[in-house]
Write a protein that binds this DNA or RNA. Structure first.
Lengths: 234, 234
DNA sequence: GAGAAAGTGTGACTTTAATCACACTTTTAG
DNA sequence: CTAAAAGTGTGATTAAAGTCACACTTTCTC
């Protein structure tokens, strides 16, 4: 499989390193009331407009973050993978959730109650410094997303999204197996910001051009390098 | 002038309260090497891809934040006003700037060098807590921006942008004078994410519908309530 | 394992907004 | 003060992507 030079960090949050190697006392506090739970596909973790009660840590599975407009149309702006943390923004800003989080496949997720997390931030400067760093980075990621949505064609956004998602769907210890993107056309179209039919047609084109192969709904990127050229980033 | 019920906080950052009422020792540190400078219109404070050397505090004037794509097209994602702080994300995340900041009118801006600001964060938990809170809020603002760009028509985005900008352009102590939006059609179109010609045509429509008046390039909102209905947020 | 529900592919058509071309106006700089 | 440059408005045309309608396929669920 081609390995390509692509700035994935510009499109990925960094929250997976937040708890890594934290002092034992901090971890103890965070783990004190932590509960782990298995979620089915399409379960909602939290909903836009409601108040946060804690944060979520994804042990396994994928979660989409999105906003729904008054007509019910979803705009997915991020897909979280294993290791990522969710829901801390609203908690820290003391506001309602600005978006909804929902599993897009079976997932194992643990929950840390609000008070424990907030206390940990107050007591641990390592933790709060990491959060500062993570959120600073996220700012750039969202700004990139905004620019892409505003400036790139649907075809370019599809190419870009395929690459970003491939990176997210790749499995550890299976470096040489082809990566299969396993999400619905519906979700993919909402992530790209286009109509489902438009996505279908473009995927058809990509297939004809030999850039991808499909296996049911799964998508395998055959020519990442060519795809990154289509993304037209630089 | 109509006063309307509109969730401006969903579209505005909060950085203006960061330094307010900070302990004297913190302020002293921040002010130690602070330098203030007058900028002409269209001067660049920092550029995407370069490394940060400090942060900027706007005393007077407006600054646009934007990204430029490879074809040179600008996407403005935020307009900063008096009191706002700029450029701390890249500093904290230890990354290059992800966007460019440029004045859109004459401005007075002070600069706090990198080391002073980073030291202040380390020494002042009030400051770092405020930054955490501010950035958590910014996350929501950018997500809202993304959803708007992805889901709203140009006409809706124009209506929304006019309201948000009016709030930004209103002057203290002049509550009852009409607010004049004073920025170029070019910048406004880049903020909305459309072609300049399309913007011109829509402004023409708004004028015909009695929603706005124009005075040279300046725009005065006559019927904010009607405009907020067009924005079609809820 | 059968029926229902959800998801997907495809053609025809419509709509929105971008692009191009150019006249006119305002601002800026020497 | 004046020429050049930058910014603005308008018509004509094109292009991109959305919408609608519907057949077909996969997947859930009982």
């Amino acid at each position: 499989m081609q390995s390509i030079d692509f700035p994935f960090d510009k499109f990925n949050f960094n929250s997976d390193s937040i708890f890594e190697g934290l002092p034992e006392s901090d971890l103890e506090l965070l783990n004190k009331n932590r509960v782990t739970h298995t979620y089915k596909k399409s379960e909602i973790l939290f909903r836009e407009g409601s108040y946060p009660t804690g944060i979520y840590f994804i042990k396994k599975g994928k979660v989409k973050k999105y906003k729904t407009d008054k007509e019910g149309r979803e705009q997915i702006f991020y897909v979280c993978r294993e290791g990522e943390l969710l829901g801390y923004h609203a908690l820290i800003s003391e506001e309602k959730y600005t978006d909804t989080a929902s599993t897009i496949e079976e997932a194992i997720i643990s929950f840390i109650p609000k008070d424990d997390f907030l206390l940990a931030i107050q007591l641990s400067s390592i933790l709060s410094n990491r959060l500062l760093k993570v959120m600073s980075h996220e700012f750039g990621v969202l700004v990139n997303g905004l620019a892409v949505l505003g400036q790139k064609t649907v075809r370019e956004r599809l190419a870009l999204s395929l690459l970003v998602l491939r990176d997210k769907y790749k499995k550890e210890n299976q470096e040489n197996k082809p990566v299969e993107l396993d999400l619905s056309r519906d979700d993919l179209s909402k992530y790209i910001g286009t109509a489902r039919e438009t996505l279908t047609r473009l995927l058809h084109d990509f297939k004809e051009e030999g850039l991808i192969e499909t296996n049911g709904r799964k998508i395998i990127l055959k020519k990442p390098l060519e795809i990154s050229k289509i993304a037209n980033l630089y």
